[in-house]
């Protein structure tokens, strides 16, 4: 299946020379939830703003369902809904009116039934006549999502949907995102919360300094995360590993005083029992042992550090 969004060698240089995006290439599949993970200032917002038409690209191209975002902007933008990071809403309009306005702006005929359905799905229906300025921050965020959905887009961009939102609301928001996916909407969200990406994404892209460092299925990343290390502190230093232990791919460290064994926690057999048996058969005794696990956070931090 062709990707619904295809980004090719996209770069953005601002007038002051700052390179916000450096030749980003990425395909987004229809119906998936893609999380773009990266620290503040990594280029996440620039990337989605470019796809949505707010930022003009310097080089490269983006197509949405095969249409170019510059030459065919009417088609591409009509398919996209954008929820910005900042709570930028009107103040004096009612919730219903502001959502209905966006529907019109995106070229759709006024349809109160659609607006009603969107508001109800976001638990905003009882607030439909409230002025937006009277709403709490969490409710305003929902209004922004409702506006983005008012024209029934196929692709939804959520820029930091849970930044500065408390845990309960964040879980609510994840539920909203999952519900949307069930209706077939492709969702791209940016976040700097790793657990958020872990919780709801199908794929995770890591972005830093304007570069896309990696895009992987969450499961594959989880597997990396599932790797564990068993470190044994030896009683006496070893010069070399005995042949009987060669199959374990052990690492000898700290001047021969420690052995590190890497294993997969998700595998049926971790091989720990066998290793310990073979160690004692080889006459190697140890005085301490510990295990450690690389988290997504560590993977992320090391990726980001390497790219800096």
């Amino acid at each position: 299946m062709d990707p619904i969004v295809s980004i090719k060698a996209l770069s953005k240089r601002y007038a002051n020379g700052f390179e916000a995006l450096k030749s980003v290439t990425l395909d987004i599949e229809k119906g998936e939830i893609l999380a773009l993970l990266g620290p503040n200032g990594a280029g996440k917002t620039t990337l989605i703003s470019t796809i949505c038409g707010i930022v003009t690209p310097s080089e490269g191209s983006v197509t949405v369902a095969g249409h170019d975002i510059v030459t065919d902007y009417r088609k591409t933008r009509a398919m996209i809904g954008l929820v910005p990071q900042e709570l930028t809403t009107d103040a004096f309009e009612s919730v219903f009116d502001t959502v209905s306005f966006t529907r019109g702006l995106f070229g759709k005929k006024r349809d109160d039934a659609v607006v009603e359905r969107v508001l109800k799905s976001l638990s905003l229906w009882d607030k439909k006549d409230n002025k937006i300025m009277m709403l709490s921050g969490g409710m305003k965020r929902r209004v922004l999502i409702a506006k983005a959905l008012a024209h029934e887009p196929e692709i939804l961009f959520l820029d930091e949907p849970t930044a500065g939102v408390d845990m309960e609301l964040r879980k609510d928001m994840w539920e909203v995102v999952r519900d949307l996916r069930r209706t077939g909407v492709t969702i791209i969200l940016t976040t700097h919360y790793i657990e958020e990406a872990e919780e709801i994404a199908d794929r995770i892209g890591v972005i830093n300094n304007g570069e896309l460092l990696l895009v992987e299925e969450k499961q594959a990343l989880m597997q990396k995360m599932g790797q564990k290390q068993l470190t044994l502190d030896l009683q006496a230093p070893l010069d070399a590993l005995p042949d009987s232990l060669m199959d374990y791919a052990l690492e000898l460290g700290d001047g021969g005083t420690s052995l590190t064994y890497t294993y997969d926690t998700q595998a049926k057999r971790t091989g720990i029992t066998a290793l310990l048996g073979d160690l004692s058969a080889a006459g190697i005794s140890f005085r301490d042992l510990r295990t450690s696990q690389s988290s997504l956070e560590e993977i992320f931090v090391s990726l980001v550090k390497d790219s800096a």
Binding site: I54, R74, T76, R77, L82, P84, D90, T102, F106
Partner: peptide, 13 residues
Amino acid sequence: FTGTIFEILSAPV
């Protein structure tokens, strides 16, 4: 001023 211009800029207009 409020930032809602993003909506106009990202709309198919």
